[in-house]
Structures are given as C-alpha cells and as structure tokens.
C-alpha cells in the first residue's frame, strides 16, 4: 500500500500507542520523583535501597524463581508426554481449558480446599496432636501459583516439542546415545526456546501477583505487586508505588532480554 492509505491505518493505532503505552510509562517514571505531598524528591529511590524494600524485592524474586522452577519441573514432562498421546491436540485443549477459568475463582477454590485442612487441623488440635497451618503460608502461595501458571508453561514447551523433528531423536539413538544423553544433548537444547517463553510468561506475572498474596497467603508474602497495590490503593503514596513500579519494569526488561523477545500471549 502506498503512503496515503498507510497513514490512514496508522492514526488510531499510533494514538493508542502514545496514549496508553508511552504516556503511562513516562507518568510512572515522573511520579516516582514525587513524595506523598507532591514535592520533587529523590527520597523514594533512597527508600527503595533500604533493607526493607531490598529485602522485599529479593523475596519477591525468590518466590517468582521458585514458582517458575516448580512449574517448569512439572510442565516439561507433561508437555513431553502429551506429544506422545494419540489425540494430542484434544489433550492439549483439555490442559489449557482451566486457564480460561477466572483466576480469582481458582484462588477461591483453594481457599475452600485449604479450609478443609483447617477443619482437619482443628480436629488434630482437639485430640492433641497440634495443627499445621496450611492456608496463609508460603507453601500454599507457591502451590496455588504453580497451579495457575502450569498451562501457560505447558503450552510453549508443547509447541516446541511438537515442532521437533523426530528423526533427530532417532538419529541420536542410532548413534548410540542413551535416552538421557538424547534428552540432554538433543531434545532439551532444541526446545529451549519454548522453555524460555514459558519461563517468561510465568516469571514476570508471578512478581506481581497481589491478589493471591492477599487471598491465599494472608499478607504473609509480600511481592513487588503487593507493595505497588498497597502504595497506590491503600496508603495513597503514589510516588513510592511508582518507584517500585519503575524497578519492576526494569526487572521485566531484563527478563525479556534474557528469555528472548518472542512474545507469547497468555492464552494460546
């Protein structure tokens, strides 16, 4: 298409980019330089580098890392075995289906399930064994997050495995490679892109899951997302919230560079 018509398509789209992509990012950066009374200051950044916020950032990364790791450990074999099934597209659809159910309903379901343990716990306490609190713990937070992210990890790995040429695997076997060697030297390196995309879709959102920390972890786990939500909607300290957001954006960019630029949408 020539220039005139091209400009015509560009207008609404570029307006959208300017208004909803570029401007909000700049506004976050701009607000990070103001304190709660609206004075220009660098205090927010100073505050961020105190032990409180750095500790929180570290623990947030640690949780995100654990969530990504466990999701990967469960997802890879699942994706691999799915490619071996007879009606693999149908099975894949069934694996993806739960990801279409509203996230909050799934979190709520776990409220109930862990509540069962609470009932069991009170029983244990009554007969004198003592209770183990399952809801409102790190474990429950990680478990529910892994549950929620599992389909998003399986999908890109499945696609990568599906595109893998089986004759390569046969060749490795023919040349005397054991199953483990074949996996380590052939299958895994060739599906690494899928793994990277999967890690990207899991790691970035798990830095910011504030609703899960609120519902499941009972404010015990504070992620970067929880802190941002707290500052914006509870204490109204937008400056500090924006500062944390700036660091979250930086983290996001670094992860994008590490895992490659290929963007995967959350569903299919």
């Amino acid at each position: 298409m020539r220039n005139t018509s091209r400009n015509f398509y560009l207008i609404p789209y570029v307006l959208w980019i300017i208004l909803f992509v570029v401007t909000p990012l700049f506004l976050v950066l701009y607000y990070s330089f103001f304190d709660i009374e609206g004075h220009f200051t660098l205090d927010n950044y100073k505050k961020f580098f105190t032990t409180v916020y750095l500790g929180m950032t570290l623990s947030s990364f640690w949780y995100a890392f654990l969530i990504t790791l466990f999701t990967l450990i469960i997802a890879y074999p699942t994706a691999y075995l799915l490619t071996k099934t007879k009606h693999k597209q149908l099975w894949l659809l069934l694996i993806i289906l739960p990801s279409w159910i509203n996230l909050l309903l799934k979190a709520y379901a776990f409220l109930g399930i862990f509540g069962t343990y609470r009932a069991a716990n009170s029983f244990l306490k009554m007969i004198g064994i003592g209770s183990k609190q399952l809801l409102f713990t790190d474990f429950s937070f990680i478990f529910v997050s892994v549950y929620i992210f599992l389909p998003f990890m399986i999908l890109p790995i499945f696609n990568a495995l599906n595109e893998l040429n089986p004759s390569l695997v046969d060749a490795a076997h023919d040349l005397g490679g054991s199953s483990w060697t074949t996996f380590r030297r052939v299958i895994f390196p060739l599906t690494l892109d899928g793994v990277k995309s999967g890690c990207q879709v899991v790691f970035i959102p798990s830095l910011s899951l504030f609703m899960l920390t609120r519902l499941i972890a009972g404010n015990r786990v504070i992620t970067l997302g929880t802190a941002i939500e707290q500052h914006f909607l509870v204490t109204q300290d937008w400056g500090m919230g924006s500062t944390i957001a700036v660091f979250l954006i930086i983290a996001m960019v670094i992860i994008m560079i590490v895992t490659g630029k290929k963007v995967v949408s959350k569903v299919l």
Binding site: P205, L207, I228, I249, V263
Partner: peptide
Amino acid sequence: TLLSLNNVLIVSPDVIIGASFLILFTM
C-alpha cells in the same frame, strides 16, 4: 518499533498497567 511498542502491554504485569492507567486517568 511498532511491534515492540505493541508488545509492551502484553508482557507488562497487570499491576503496572493498572497503576500507570490510574495515574493517567487522574491526570
């Protein structure tokens, strides 16, 4: 450039989108 800008909102965590839009609408 257009593609990268397009993908910003897909990869951004929801919290960032929400917070920045909140600032935008208030402004």
